[in-house]
Simulated assay, not measured.
Amino acid sequence: MRILGIDPGTAIVGYSILDFKENKYNLIKYGCIYTSKDLPMEDRLLQIFNELEEIINEYSPKFMAVEELFFFKNNKTVISVGQARGVIILAGKKNGLQIENYTPLQVKMGITGYGKADKKQVQLMVQKILKLDEIPKPDDAADAIAVAITHINSLTNTLYSSKPVTTIKVEKEIKTNRMTAKEFRELLMNK
């Protein structure tokens, strides 16, 4: 299955193309669509739509996973990002993609197993899950990869491993009902 992951924005839209086959992730491409702040908003939205449609046509994903908006202190920012997100969803729908939305909390949980993980922790797990030599850059593209991985995990019920969740062995005893994100990752990675 091929997923298009999206981290929406107005100035920068992060995207990723990720394949999942035989319990293996394969990162095909990632990057960003950049728009100039000097352009009128309608031109920026058109640019996002056109470039995203080119990516869809080139890579033929079946699914589009889009990060939902979180609370912004600046109302102008939330409106413009909301407009960009609408254009992104329109491009996916127009091209017949199955669209799913994930909150930042769902992405953090889906990648690290911890809802309060910071951006660096999410990026390190993306690197580890995909067995990359370095963390993908820029941050917007890394976030788009995390959204795509979260979608794959939600469809396949696999977490950070090629093993189905039901076969992960717990090798050390859990002594409390709380554990750190590091302990959780180690548990899942069978370290």
Results as ranks from 00 to 15, higher is better:
residue 54 E to N: 09
residue 122 V to E: 07
residue 32 C to D: 11
residue 170 V to S: 02
residue 176 T to P: 00
residue 137 K to T: 15
residue 69 L to E: 12
residue 164 P to L: 08
residue 8 P to C: 11
residue 117 A to F: 09
residue 189 M to Y: 14
residue 162 S to W: 03
residue 5 G to V: 10
residue 94 K to H: 11
residue 49 F to V: 06
residue 35 T to E: 09
residue 188 L to A: 07
residue 119 K to R: 09
residue 90 L to V: 13
residue 140 D to I: 05
residue 76 K to W: 07
residue 116 K to D: 15
residue 111 I to P: 05
residue 136 P to G: 01
residue 71 F to H: 07
residue 105 L to M: 15
residue 80 S to A: 07
residue 115 G to W: 12
residue 14 G to P: 14
residue 72 F to Y: 15
residue 42 E to H: 10
residue 173 E to S: 04
residue 122 V to M: 06
residue 81 V to N: 07
residue 124 L to F: 04
residue 85 R to Y: 02
residue 95 N to Q: 03
residue 105 L to S: 10
residue 152 I to D: 06
residue 25 Y to I: 04
residue 95 N to P: 00
residue 52 L to C: 09
residue 171 E to D: 09
residue 21 K to D: 14
residue 43 D to K: 12
residue 92 G to E: 14
residue 102 Y to V: 06
residue 170 V to D: 01
residue 20 F to Y: 15
residue 188 L to T: 07
residue 16 S to T: 10
residue 24 K to R: 14
residue 163 K to L: 11
residue 42 E to C: 01
residue 151 H to A: 05
residue 36 S to G: 00
residue 134 E to D: 13
residue 109 M to V: 12
residue 100 E to N: 08
residue 35 T to I: 06
residue 151 H to P: 02
residue 130 L to E: 14
residue 133 D to F: 01
residue 3 I to M: 15
residue 140 D to F: 03
residue 33 I to H: 03
residue 94 K to C: 05
residue 186 E to R: 08
residue 2 R to P: 05
residue 59 Y to I: 06
residue 190 N to P: 00
residue 72 F to G: 04
residue 143 D to R: 02
residue 106 Q to H: 06
residue 80 S to E: 14
residue 60 S to W: 09
residue 178 R to T: 15
residue 170 V to L: 08
residue 58 E to M: 08
residue 58 E to L: 12
residue 80 S to V: 12
residue 140 D to L: 02
residue 28 I to F: 00
residue 46 L to H: 10
residue 160 Y to D: 14
residue 154 S to H: 10
residue 112 T to S: 04
residue 25 Y to S: 04
residue 41 M to E: 15
residue 12 I to M: 10
residue 26 N to T: 08
residue 166 T to D: 12
residue 68 E to D: 13
residue 10 T to Y: 10
residue 162 S to F: 09
residue 124 L to S: 01
residue 155 L to M: 09
residue 181 A to V: 04
residue 125 M to G: 05
residue 105 L to T: 15
residue 145 I to M: 14
residue 165 V to T: 05
residue 42 E to S: 12
residue 45 L to Q: 10
residue 128 K to Y: 15
residue 106 Q to C: 04
residue 67 E to P: 02
